[in-house]
Design a protein around this nucleic acid. Structure first.
Lengths: 220, 220
DNA sequence: GTGCGGTTAATTGGATCCAAATAGTCGAAT
DNA sequence: ATTCGACTATTTGGATCCAATTAACCGCAC
């Protein structure tokens, strides 16, 4: 999976990167109004690169722009979130299949140890971070131009709701997560990409079904 | 499938829409340099909304921006194009499944007549237009927030190469296309979304394999 | 003749200023 | 008291100007 290409607007890119982290970390919650001038002042720039940054984040799906009205941190309905997980269920197994043959032994062992580390950790922010790193690392062997970016967008857009879900049920209230991770690691170590695809698809599907049992996460 | 949401920048949106059509119609070919001032003059605006338009088209995947250097009409390698078709192969069946139950009789009959019309038509531009309208209409029943837009981006990004391919082999050199379309229409009329998914997946897959037999399309 | 370096021209990026549109508020009339 | 309407204030969108970066071109030395 290639890192995103260099885009224009050095300042705009910097601001976008920083604001993206703020949104993903939960500092800016979905629905929060974003005023251009506030950001401009915060970053010591004019409103122009801020506009660029908002556009970048809009194409990331993290910000929603409305003409002549303003920008808000994007929020998803339960139905939209389920849609995102259905897309993930279909394309992440493909990404994994493209990645697996190119992963070296060192990376595979790091993936396995991340899965173990997750099992031990009780802190939710750490758990979320490890989970993200685990899955994205399994994709790191894929040399893709669009698939990797799309998957990252899907992860970013749903990050807030994953955190809300984890806060609700606790970092390892459900042992099935860790079990599926172990299954996935096993299939990957065997180089069985077909089985890995199947496990991953089921993992994402089960997560979607569990999310659907907690519609209160998406209440306004 | 919802039409894309209203975005900010009335002028920028207008310019983006117009330029998008120019690119899709083949007026601007992949690799063509785009100068901001040229567009500004062409649309009677300043360079600022042009920059917005280029950002919009970049997130569409139709334009590639490089910092402090310029903008070009995006071009794909054969490997990238195959990747795009692999993504389509996985997500368009899902989109079709979400759409099919919501299609009324009138739309289904229009879909069927489009398939027939395609079979009769010999002009390549008309063929491409009908093919696009056919498939997008089969998706028109889906109420999605991201899936429809993603599929449209994939279609747009690969439009130029589909045209090049059609020009190479002719609009109906391969009877398999029309046969698969008929199979798809049949499954849809029966309301058999599982079979429709299977046919569509195979259709996209076969198209990808055929494209791979003509690497000269992607030569610089 | 070829390769390296500097200078110049062209193009993009950013800041400031001004216009347009929206939303919130105050007031008046029913 | 409530609802409709106008006005004002706030915020976004666009135009012009200036700075920074890049690429092309010419000249010089080897």
């Amino acid at each position: 999976m290639t890192t995103t290409a260099i885009r224009d607007g050095a300042a705009g890119q910097r601001i976008a990167d920083s604001l993206r982290q703020s949104i993903l970390s939960g500092e800016y919650r979905p629905g929060t109004r974003i005023r251009q001038e506030d950001l401009a002042e915060r970053f010591g720039a004019s409103r122009l690169p801020v506009r660029d940054a908002l556009r970048i984040l809009e194409s990331d799906g993290l910000v929603t722009l409305v003409a002549n009205t303003g920008a808000w941190v994007s929020h998803l309905s339960l139905a939209e979130c389920e849609e995102f997980y259905q897309i993930r269920e279909r394309i992440e197994p493909l990404l994994l299949r493209l990645s697996l043959p190119n992963l070296d032994r060192v990376t595979l062992e790091r993936i396995a140890s991340l899965a173990d580390e997750m099992q031990a950790n009780r802190d939710i922010d750490t758990f979320l971070h490890l989970d993200r790193e685990f899955h994205l690392l399994t994709y790191s062997g894929a040399d893709t131009s669009m698939l990797g970016d799309t998957v990252q967008r899907l992860w970013n857009s749903t990050q807030h709701y994953r955190r809300a879900f984890s806060n609700l049920i606790g970092p390892h209230a459900n042992r099935a997560v860790h079990y599926e991770h172990q299954l996935l690691v096993g299939a990957m170590l065997r180089g069985d990409s077909e089985d890995a695809e199947r496990v991953l698809s089921g993992h994402i599907r089960r997560t979607r079904l569990e999310l659907a049992h907690h519609p209160e996460i998406f209440a306004e």
